[in-house]
Amino acid sequence: MRHRAGLVLALAITVTAAACGGDRVVVAAGTTVVDGGLLDAVVERYEAATGTPVAVTGAATREVLALGERGGADFLVTHAPAQEAEFLVRHPEAVSSRVFASRFLLVGPPERAAGLVGLDPPGAFATIAERGWTFVTRADGSGTHDKELEIWALAGIEPAGSWLLSTGQGMGLSLQVADQRSGFILVEEGTFLVAQPTVSLVPVEWADDGALTANPYTAIAPSGDGAAADLLAWMTGPEGVAAITAANVAAYGRLVYVP
């Protein structure tokens, strides 16, 4: 009996160790590229091409970077330039590269969105604040939240008040809250396109020269070598670009996350 118990234990340990995977690359990425399914589609191709298992988890950029710092993730995809720069200064061994870019949209209830046509982003935000229209903020240290704060700062407004709903959650859930509470939300385009059939919010046709609303994503391999560096090289190489393009076309019929 004793022997059998030992055998079972040994087996359990082996299975657990195998499940934890020696060569598995753990990818932590902003919820904007995970909630919409883009990153899963891209890494699936990498897995098929190389046989290296990849696991993708979504989180706000602040947590993604913290995971990279603590060794909880091997490969990071983030979209908050200021936080990324700080991370790279602290970790000179890390390698990084821009991988693709989408853009931010302001979406809201149709009647009210019509009232913001032609305004620039800070102007639109200022109008929302003045009128006390509901605005849903991620408030979670994500790249999207950083962008919200940047636009509020340009508008010269410190957002506060009962019209501001703060979810502290990912892009998908926050968008649902905005929809059901008839509020505005700054949303990353790909996530919005996936959710669009189920929500009644529409994009504000604001005066957008593309500079302020650009949403560049950076991939970081904190260790600077090994499987994570291989993935980074693949993603920025011709095969990766082809995979990103194909994933875009399959999901949206056009390029939303432009490599």
């Binding site: 995971l67 979670d140 703060s166």
Partner: peptide, 18 residues
């Protein structure tokens, strides 16, 4: 925040943000 945040959802939020 201030409307529907309870202890468990706040824990998820704090953990998600490291």
């Amino acid at each position: 925040r201030g409307e529907t945040r309870v202890l468990t959802t706040a824990i998820v939020e704090e953990a998600r943000q490291a």
